[in-house]
């Protein structure tokens, strides 16, 4: 079931989340945030609240992320966890966020299509294929 409201803002401990008119959910990691298990669970809950059928692609801007904990990585990797999107684009523009993004993709090997981008335009172009 798609949410008919054009935009919706939601917050979790390390993320800011917003649904845009183009049906792509955008999330931002807060500056210097450490994405821990609590944040991982909250973002998943929030995404599923916005799109219960997980049909909207998600773009996550890693911004100035400080770290993602082992517990959070394991949570995202857990096969029993219900997917919250058909695809995820990660935006990384700093050395640290690029490294964290690549490391996460390499170690975790997400089950749903997930790619790392350096700019939003390319990311949105790719995500629109999943709408």
């Amino acid at each position: 079931m798609r949410n008919s409201i054009a935009t919706e803002k939601s917050f979790s401990s390390a993320f800011k989340i917003k649904l845009e008119k183009d049906e792509i959910v955008r999330a931002w990691v807060k500056d210097h945030a450490v994405v821990d298990l609590n944040s991982a669970k909250k973002i998943t809950e929030t995404l599923l609240k916005i799109t219960p059928d997980a049909s909207r692609p998600v773009m996550i801007n890693l911004g100035k992320i400080n770290y993602i904990t082992k517990e959070a990585r394991d949570y995202f990797k857990d096969e029993k966890r219900k997917p919250s999107a058909p695809s995820i684009a990660l935006i990384a523009k700093t050395t640290l966020s690029t490294f964290i993004g690549n490391f996460y993709l390499g170690l975790n090997r997400p089950k749903i299509p997930t790619r790392l981008f350096t700019d939003e335009t390319s990311a949105i172009k790719w995500l629109k294929k999943f709408l």
């Binding site: 770290y67 993602i68 050395t95 640290l96 966020s97 490294f99 964290i100 490391f103 170690l107």
Partner: peptide
């Protein structure tokens, strides 16, 4: 330690920490 500059040494630190966690497990 990961500093606030988020430079290449911070990236190295993050990588070492993550690898260490996987190795510990």
């Amino acid at each position: 330690a990961i500093g606030k500059d988020h430079d290449i040494l911070d990236a190295l630190a993050a990588g070492i920490n993550m690898l260490g966690e996987e190795l510990r497990d």
